[in-house]
Design a protein around this nucleic acid. Structure first.
Lengths: 189, 189
DNA sequence: TAATTATTAGTACCAGGTACTAATAATAGG
DNA sequence: CCTATTATTAGTACCTGGTACTAATAATTA
């Protein structure tokens, strides 16, 4: 037949690539892409130990599932527990396994920064606020499972420039301190 | 019957909570949890416009699917393109929709911080490295789709304390600058 | 040519649903 | 008190995306 003369191995390599770059492909999709029958795809997956569609989705979903409150999503990192716009606010961030170094279960600094930064920005009473600069100190390591309570306070302002001080604690112990300069922007800047 | 006298509305609220905190629950699971039949759960989902199990997983998986390189995962934010441990390194972060403010498509500062911070930490030749403090400036807004190239350099060291300077650019324009003080820790600190 | 490997077809089965019909409780209104 | 409406449950047929298995037919290799 006038089929592309690809070997089994070549096809299986392609299969791996397809699935790795897009786990949402079903066997039927793959069969069409590779020009073989669905049964062949199944045999290939078996040999390559690639789980079925639904299992794949489950695992992608799981890996990310409980990190919904993490940096990539939502407008705020952590959970806002109290806010008085223009004045002060607080948020809580629980350290999950995705946020820590595998080696020692210490949270990566940028998560604490992210909590503080998004809290600082949330405080500003403007359509859009951007961080201009920041000075931050990581006072004490934060561990997996810790509940980090961030407290922010607007400590000064000049024109559209606000100074926000954030102190984050884990059970009364200060773990992070930062001073953020946030700019309030007009609606259509 | 000696059932908990919960109203339909109360049950539906509970249902929402259950599903929000754990999208992996099937109708059967939920039926058992709430002490009603599977059919009732289905009707509830219909009324609440909650999609079915497989659709939910698909969406969790999708929402996060392409943000694998974002903050919550991997040991590094951005893609490492060059590194010479103890000296310098570079990484690239492409700004996705998850990283920007919906209103103006400008990247939230903490993502740039995260890229720089994880790059700084990666540079340190130690089992574990932690950021002590940092001074950062966001020079120019970064937009959705921008490819942020971060360049880090160890600019000094004293004992286990390293000073790392990071400059991030989008097409030759400096968008972020930061000086990080990173501490190298012993294996079993 | 015989043996082996690769590919395809088909069957029965499963999970987790949708969509629909129908029967039975429970609650409220007059 | 009886009726009308709402709530809940049961059951059926069907769908997707598979697993597990059997069997037949190419294509290759020894």
């Amino acid at each position: 037949m006038a089929k592309n003369k690809t070997t089994k191995v070549e096809r299986q390599e392609q299969l791996s690539i397809y699935i790795n770059t897009n786990p949402f492909l079903t066997d039927e999709d793959l069969a069409e892409l590779l020009g073989v029958s669905v049964q062949t795809i199944r045999l290939d997956r078996l040999e390559l130990r690639i789980p079925e569609y639904r299992e794949r989705l489950k695992h992608v979903a799981m890996g990310e599932g409980d990190s919904v409150k993490s940096l990539s999503h939502g407008e705020l990192v952590g959970e806002l527990v109290d806010i008085s716009v223009g004045k002060a606010g607080a948020s809580i961030l629980t350290i999950t396994k995705e946020m820590v170094f595998k080696k020692n279960h210490v949270a990566r600094g940028h998560h604490l920064f992210a909590q503080a930064n998004s809290l600082a920005v949330a405080l500003i009473d403007a359509a859009v606020a951007l961080t201009g600069n920041a000075r931050v100190s990581f006072r004490h390591p934060v561990k997996l499972g810790d509940r980090v309570v961030g407290n922010a306070e607007v400590s000064g302002s000049q024109d559209n420039k606000y100074k926000v001080t954030v102190v984050s604690k884990v059970k009364e112990q200060v773990v992070f301190e930062g001073i953020f300069t946030v700019f309030a922007l007009a609606e259509e800047a």
